[in-house]
Design a protein around this nucleic acid. Sequence first.
DNA 1: GTATTTTCCGGATATTCTACGGGTGCGCTC
DNA 2: GAGCGCACCCGTAGAATATCCGGAAAATAC
Lengths: 153, 153
Amino acid sequence: MTELDRVDRRILNELQADGRMTNAELADRVGLAPTSTSERLKRLQKSGYITGFSARIDPHMVGLGLLVFVEVSLDKTTPDAFDKFSRAVRQSREVLECHMVAGGFDYLVKARVTDMSHYRTFLGDVLLNLPGVSETRTYPVMEEVKPEGPLPI
Amino acid sequence: MTELDRVDRRILNELQADGRMTNAELADRVGLAPTSTSERLKRLQKSGYITGFSARIDPHMVGLGLLVFVEVSLDKTTPDAFDKFSRAVRQSREVLECHMVAGGFDYLVKARVTDMSHYRTFLGDVLLNLPGVSETRTYPVMEEVKPEGPLPI
DNA sequence: GTATTTTCCGGATATTCTACGGGTGCGCTC
DNA sequence: GAGCGCACCCGTAGAATATCCGGAAAATAC
């Protein structure tokens, strides 16, 4: 697959907004026959543009009212610190995202917990328990100005 | 709707993993008849647990290879600074998320751009152009250790 | 114990999905 | 220009699916 044309982009945008739309509905919106639309969708999946579909769930409804960002600095002299940290973070259910950044610290962690006491135990059990973690800075989210937007395609 | 039972939780988890699963497949996985499963799913949507469905798209495939986090501090003396910043950020296509945090700065912005030069123009046109923005710190992501996880339900 | 509500299920109808085959336009070769 | 291959599109038919409806069973209320 070489590149995306206007219809492909349209499909991606529509499915970002409503990923459970029927193929017939999608075909209407992009202006193609259902068959052609289905072929394009399958192609977009197989070529890796679409990696999957997921339900969006309201975190507050399931008792995850507190969103927290944590800046983590590692001690560079500790062997395997980065490896062990990566592994632990990937296994942690509370951690939604974790990125290695360039700048004043090493990792930026995005986690969801029920409340501050839950975060306290998470911080102690998961983050501070790891070897090589030298410093953490916690930023609780007071207001989610823009919760989660689609990719601009 | 009062609370979630085991089956509801199962439905949420399955649909977080594959939101386009057919209702028949979902029924198999949760161990109910398709009709009952459909009723539960509809209830979960109407009561607000499920806010929608979306396709997961590989950012690199659509030319959004650079993920950036930006810490933004506002000048508290500028009138409407927070309002104007919120509005601008919600309209910006590059901004995927924006959160007002407690701690050393005011907003944490997550944005996706094609490359550094794109980010440079985004920073100048969107963020620094706003009244009341007193300071920004940019953290480019070098490695996405955990790109995006499901909510732990 | 009875009534009410909730949850679940099966059957019938409508909608949708999914190969399959055919049509059209474009570029390439000869 | 004729022939060919390719990419894209479409309609059709049988299979799979969703959805509506009525009723049974279990949980709950009184």
